[in-house]
């Protein structure tokens, strides 16, 4: 079974870390990631840019593009895509197409990815390639 693990925290607190603190956390996390990677169990890893960079497409009779992150608590996170785009407009177009394919209620939050590590393919067991279709 594949699992996604979503990271939640206060971004203003994380934003108040010094760069040394930030680097220390990242290197501690890297040790855990490495453990998963060598057994072929680690998929893509992403660190998102702050929510201030987000826009949200709100589905409905007409698709609305709103500045800011998804902020409702009535709806739940059901899935995600990673898309490679020339810029925000192209990402919005992609989300718009998704919205047309799946109309009704809900929203897509579009957030740039600041750090992205695709599947680690050079693993001991080589299982990651099969598992993640790489």
């Amino acid at each position: 079974m594949l699992y996604a693990i979503f990271c939640y925290s206060c971004e203003d607190v994380v934003g108040a870390w010094t760069s040394a603190e930030d680097a220390a956390v990242m290197s501690r996390l890297a040790i855990v990631e490495q453990k998963l990677a060598v057994t072929g169990r680690l998929g893509p890893v992403a660190r998102l840019l702050p929510t201030t960079t987000a826009v949200t497409l709100r589905k409905g009779r007409e698709v609305l593009v709103i500045d800011g992150p998804f902020a409702e608590t009535r709806e739940q996170l059901l899935g995600f895509y990673v898309v490679d785009c020339d810029g925000l407009e192209q990402a919005i177009d992609a989300a718009r197409e998704l919205a047309m394919a799946n109309p009704g209620a809900g929203a897509y939050e579009i957030r740039p990815i600041g750090l992205y590590r695709p599947v680690a393919v050079r693993t001991v067991l080589g299982g990651a390639m099969k598992r993640f279709g790489a």
Binding site: L49, T53, L88, G114
Partner: peptide
């Protein structure tokens, strides 16, 4: 981050 904000 800066470029993403300009885009927006």
């Amino acid at each position: 981050e800066g470029l993403a904000l300009i885009d927006k």
